[in-house]
């Protein structure tokens, strides 16, 4: 909802989503979906390399995605030990 509002205000946005079906349903303009649990969307704690990969991929897809509503899966995975 907020992403759509920012987009409506005239700023391109991308969302990093742990739950891609949810953002599809709510009408995201652009999304990337790494293989992460909700609560670590940007990568594992203190994993600088992974966080950088996810943020970099998000930025590249902000520019790269040309089709509204497209969700790009990312190959970065973090399985939280509970």
């Amino acid at each position: 909802m907020v992403q759509r509002a920012i987009e409506k205000a005239g700023i391109p946005t991308i969302i990093v989503a742990a739950l891609p079906p949810v953002v599809r349903q709510t009408g995201t303009p652009r999304a990337v979906a790494p293989l992460v649990p909700m609560g670590a969307n940007m990568g594992a704690p203190h994993n600088v390399e992974q966080q950088t990969q996810i943020l970099t991929a998000a930025l590249e897809n902000l520019v790269g995605i040309q089709t509204p509503g497209k969700i790009v899966p990312l190959p970065y995975e973090y399985i939280a030990k509970i």
Binding site: T13, I15, A17
Partner: peptide, 26 residues
């Protein structure tokens, strides 16, 4: 969120001269 918070945030970011936003949610 749709009619107040979202538009407020959008206007605020616009006033800051932001060219793009990376969100984390969902």
């Amino acid at each position: 969120f749709t009619n107040e918070t979202g538009p407020e945030i959008g206007e605020f970011l616009k006033s800051e001269g932001v060219d793009g936003v990376v969100m984390s949610a969902g």
